[in-house]
C-alpha cells in the first residue's frame, strides 16, 4: 500500500511536469510567431571572403562612452560590399542580447554607396522605425556607424544616411539624417567620449 502523502507528492509532481511542458510549448510557439513577424524580405547573402580584422566603435549607453573593439569579419574584395559588412558587424553587436546599445532584431544595412570621399549609408527601416527616441541614444548610433565606417574603409571623409532608399529627416525624432556627417568632427566626438 502506497502511503497517502507519497501519492499526493507524485500527483503534484505530475501536475508540475505537465504545466512545465505546456509552458515550454507556449514559449516555442511564441518564438516561432515572432520569427515569422520579423522582416522576411530577401537580404543580401552573407559576405564571402577571407576573415580580416575590423575595428568597431561601439557605443555604451550606460557609461556614455565609445569603446573600440577588434573583431574578425569575412570581407569581400569589392569596396562598397566591404563597407556594408563592416557596418553589419557593428549592428550585430547592437542586436545581440544583452547589448551595450540595443537595436531591434532585423536592423540591417541595405546598401552603402561610395562616391569619392562621400559614403551614403542606406539603413533598413527597422533601424529607424524601432529606434529608441532620444537625442543622445540616436547620436550614439549615428556616430558609431560613421566612425566604424571611416576607420575601416580608407578615404571616406563625409557620410550621409538614407532609410529604405529615401531621405529621412531624423533617426527617431532627434538625430539629423539630412546632415552630411564630417568624419573629422565625428572622430573628435568619439575621442571625447572614450
Amino acid at each position: 500500500m502506497i502511503p497517502r502523502h507519497v501519492s499526493i507528492a507524485v500527483a503534484l509532481l505530475m501536475v508540475v511536469v505537465f504545466l512545465t511542458g505546456f509552458y515550454v510549448l507556449q514559449l516555442k510557439q511564441k518564438a516561432e510567431q515572432a520569427a515569422q513577424r520579423t522582416d522576411t524580405r530577401p537580404v543580401a547573402p552573407p559576405a564571402a571572403g577571407p576573415e580580416e580584422p575590423v575595428t568597431l566603435t561601439i557605443a555604451y549607453d550606460d557609461d556614455a562612452v565609445f569603446r573600440r573593439r577588434q573583431v574578425s569579419v569575412p570581407l569581400p574584395p569589392e569596396r562598397t560590399e566591404r563597407a556594408r559588412e563592416v557596418l553589419r558587424a557593428l549592428l550585430a553587436e547592437y542586436t545581440q542580447k544583452p547589448s551595450p546599445h540595443p537595436l531591434a532584431d532585423g536592423a540591417d544595412i541595405r546598401e552603402v554607396f561610395l562616391v569619392d570621399d562621400l559614403a551614403i549609408v542606406d539603413l533598413n527601416p527597422i533601424v529607424a522605425d524601432s529606434h529608441r527616441s532620444g537625442a543622445f541614444v540616436e547620436t550614439l548610433t549615428v556616430t558609431s556607424l560613421v566612425e566604424t565606417l571611416s576607420q575601416n574603409v580608407p578615404g571616406i571623409r563625409r557620410v550621409r544616411f538614407l532609410v529604405d532608399g529615401k531621405e529621412r529627416e531624423t533617426l527617431a525624432g532627434h538625430a539629423d539624417l539630412m546632415a552630411t556627417y564630417d568624419v573629422k568632427q565625428v572622430d573628435e566626438l568619439v575621442r571625447g567620449l572614450q
Binding site: 556614455a64 537625442a135 543622445f136 547620436t139 549615428v142 529627416e169 531624423t170 532627434h174 538625430a175 539629423d176 539630412m178 546632415a179 556627417y181 568632427q185 573628435e188 566626438l189 571625447g192 567620449l193
Partner: peptide
Amino acid sequence: LLMPANVRPMN
C-alpha cells in the same frame, strides 16, 4: 555632458 550632436533643427 557637453558634446557636439546634430539635433534637428539646430543646424
